[in-house]
């Protein structure tokens, strides 16, 4: 089997053991050593440096990282808006690197939905909310009646049934983003990608939008990947993936458990992500705390690996 197939098999086994998705189902998104290099004016920039990522069907995942870490690049690749320079990316069975223009178009139409931060980029201001939702279905050449029906269903789901016939400028910011979510879900995509959907919104509205995303995830089973800086979002998703220098650095997994008093308590555990080559990124605060630099010493223990600074005080450097 190829490396990617091994990975999928591994991940499938892991998915069976934990997390959403049907038991035994293939991952929805698999990125294997994904690389993206930009060239401009003779200067090359590696936005993604061999990124590995697997998302299971139905997951609600947040992707965080500093500016320039590669979040938007990854999102654009997964949305079919950009092509990677190397590696492999498979979304809902579609190999993004091997698609031609026509296949990519169909992919964007039916496999992924995209949500931008600015509402003006998500919706056409001269159309009503319902017309905006119907637009992707129009592009997919769906007949009129099913289009309307689907649009009504989605707007109902997202609490916009009363605003269906309003023009976009007549909607509030939160309503606009919810309408944008409906647009993204119009053709029943398997994946919904959101690029900082709450970035321009106040707290209350941001809550509203995130609730809508969660509703969409729970009700339709769509796999959601949200790029965000919003702490509120990261705290409410089961999985938060951190990207640093073009690679996945850490993941935070959250689960809710019932304590001895019967209270539901949420536990969050941060993990460093180990790539297929065995590399991992140490959290920055750990590095700073122990003043780790240049090289570290490793010691294998029966149940862990110890990492020590490369030089101790008093030793020759």
């Amino acid at each position: 089997m190829t490396g990617i197939d091994d990975l999928i098999a591994d991940r499938t086994r892991a998915a069976r053991a934990s997390g959403p998705g049907e038991p035994g189902s293939a991952p929805m998104i698999v990125c294997d050593r994904l690389v993206r290099i930009f060239s401009a004016a003779g200067i090359e920039t590696q936005a993604l440096q061999g990124l590995d990522l697997v998302l299971q069907p139905g997951e609600l995942t947040a992707l965080v990282g500093a500016s320039g870490s590669g979040k938007s690049t990854l999102l654009n690749i997964l949305a079919g808006l950009d092509l990677p320079t190397g590696g492999r990316a498979v979304v809902d069975g579609h190999d993004l690197l091997s698609m031609n223009v026509k296949e990519r178009l169909a992919y964007r139409r039916s496999t992924v939905g995209f949500l931008w931060q600015q509402t003006s980029r998500n919706l056409l201001g001269h159309l009503t909310a319902a017309e905006n939702v119907q637009l992707p279905m129009e592009l997919a050449k769906l007949p009129r009646r099913p289009r309307k029906q689907r649009a009504d269903e989605l707007l109902e789901l997202l609490g916009l049934a009363d605003s269906a016939d309003r023009l976009v400028p007549e909607l509030s910011g939160g309503q606009q983003q919810r309408a944008a979510i409906a647009v993204a879900l119009a053709n029943k995509p398997g994946v919904l990608l959101a690029d900082e959907p709450t970035g321009e919104l106040d707290t209350e509205t941001a809550d509203e939008v995130f609730d809508a995303l969660r509703t969409a995830n729970e009700q339709t089973g769509v796999t959601v990947l949200i790029v965000t800086h919003d702490a509120m979002v990261t705290e409410h998703v089961n999985r938060t993936v951190a990207i640093r220098d073009g690679r996945i650095s850490t993941e935070v997994l959250r689960r809710t458990a019932t304590d001895e008093q019967g209270m539901r308590v949420q536990h969050a555990q941060e993990y460093a992500v180990l790539d297929r080559a065995g590399r991992l990124q140490l959290p920055g605060d750990f590095i700073d705390a122990l003043d780790l630099k240049d090289r570290v010493k490793l010691e294998l223990e029966p149940d862990h690996i110890g990492v020590w600074p490369g030089h101790q005080a008093g030793e020759d450097s």
Partner: peptide
């Protein structure tokens, strides 16, 4: 551009 993103040919 938005139509193209949404899958318009």
């Amino acid at each position: 551009a938005l139509l193209r993103v949404r899958g318009g040919s």
